[in-house]
Design a protein around this nucleic acid. Structure first.
Lengths: 229, 229
DNA sequence: TAATAATGATAGTATTACTATTATTTATTA
DNA sequence: TAATAAATAATAGTAATACTATCATTATTA
């Protein structure tokens, strides 16, 4: 982004760092757009290179396969959310306000100012919502987890778990509540758009207020404490 | 099953009803085992037919492709859970007890008596946990939803939402809580096994007691009412 | 300016995701 | 029980996918 943050990701995810070259940045840019457009199953490096005006071989020099590219994008996203949470809660002392602000950030991450020019955050958000869990639902989870492929998500969960503990030190499931909040945020946006009988919230024109309200209700109900506003 | 229930599924999911022939039943039996073994991505009809001692062409006469087979298995699973919930809560009047029993059933569905001989329920459960959400995370969701491919899951959610409303008619998110309970049950078993930093529960040797306890804690905390025991 | 590294162009291979055709077995029914 | 139909097996074939390899060209950097 203009301010110059660098999203730091596990370097085993790629063969050549895509953030460092313009071809690499193009791969990121166009893979986000193309996966969003045609879905992860139909996406491949041939189509991507065609759309980019590059070649299959070149893309393969950056990523071993599309699965690792997806993990890369997912990691990028959570690292980005994590960064936004840091900024947005920076000067907040009160843990309840901090948790509220965290929830707001998770739901509206993509609406936060434009940032890194080769990443369309709002398209990426949509992609994470529909394809995100495929990153870790694979036969290779254990190996990939050992290789640290999911660290960004786990660290973010732990960061939020820490806030949860601050709000209520007696709460027995801080990590589960944290990860569930992330999963729920994405799931219920998806449900609202595609399987509305599975939820009670509605979403229209990118307005996720009802999702946000529900997440706050769930969190503060469980933590047996009142919201500030 | 011996008692003679018939799991009724949308007939657009298949080309020929697999429950009606022994080849069809074999397809179900072996696809469950093989997907569990090698994962959905590496699974294909060639490998399946090889393992069954049949041919690719024969499998294609039952299912258009592996994606529809997955939806079939997922639907089968939720219909089966739904059936178990009906039996297990049949004579329970008290909604709180009913919800407790429902949660127990969801978490331990696979442990319920052996049933239909061509379905290994406990392997199927494991498969749903790791591959289940791929059934509806696809570019075709809307079309497939219109075709009624996800009815079993939606009806089950609504059934549980009804119990939730009985427990607390003021609760504003009964559908979301219901679907979230299903998602959470599977997610946290998966997390406990593969990404433990994302949860607080542990699972060993198929013992899901901690998951069950957590789900009850979440549900009854949200519904602001005490559990019975 | 020479050397090095990155990219493009092109080709090739094994596997996947099917469809088609014909032969054979099994089930049905006359 | 023979005739007929239906289901399955065997085999082959095609287009697309998921890569790998090679060599030419263009940038970069020493």
């Amino acid at each position: 982004m203009s301010v110059g943050i660098k999203i730091s990701l596990n370097d085993k995810l790629y063969l050549r760092d895509p953030q460092q070259t313009s071809l690499g940045q193009n791969i990121i840019r166009h893979s986000i757009l193309l996966i969003d457009e045609i879905g992860f199953e139909d996406f491949n490096f041939k189509k991507l290179s065609l759309q980019m005006g590059s070649t299959e071989a070149s893309v393969y020099r950056y990523f071993e396969n599309k699965h690792l590219l997806l993990i890369y994008l997912v990691s990028w996203y959570w690292e980005w959310v994590s960064y936004l949470i840091d900024i947005n809660t920076m000067n907040i002392e009160d843990p309840v306000r901090k948790l509220e602000k965290t929830i707001e950030t998770v739901v509206y991450a993509s609406k936060d100012n434009p940032s890194i020019d080769y990443v369309n955050e709002s398209v990426l958000h949509r992609l994470i919502i529909s394809e995100g869990t495929k990153a870790y639902h694979t036969k290779l989870v254990d190996k990939e987890n050992r290789d640290g492929f999911f660290l960004n998500y786990k660290r973010l969960s732990e960061k939020v778990a820490d806030v949860i503990i601050e709000v209520n030190p007696e709460f027995p499931y801080p990590h589960a509540l944290a990860s569930n909040m992330f999963e729920m945020a994405n799931n219920h946006i998806y449900f609202a758009l595609h399987l509305p009988r599975l939820t009670d919230v509605a979403v229209k024109d990118g307005n996720y207020d009802e999702v946000q309200k529900m997440l706050k209700y769930f969190a503060f109900s469980l933590l047996k404490c009142d919201q500030k506003k």
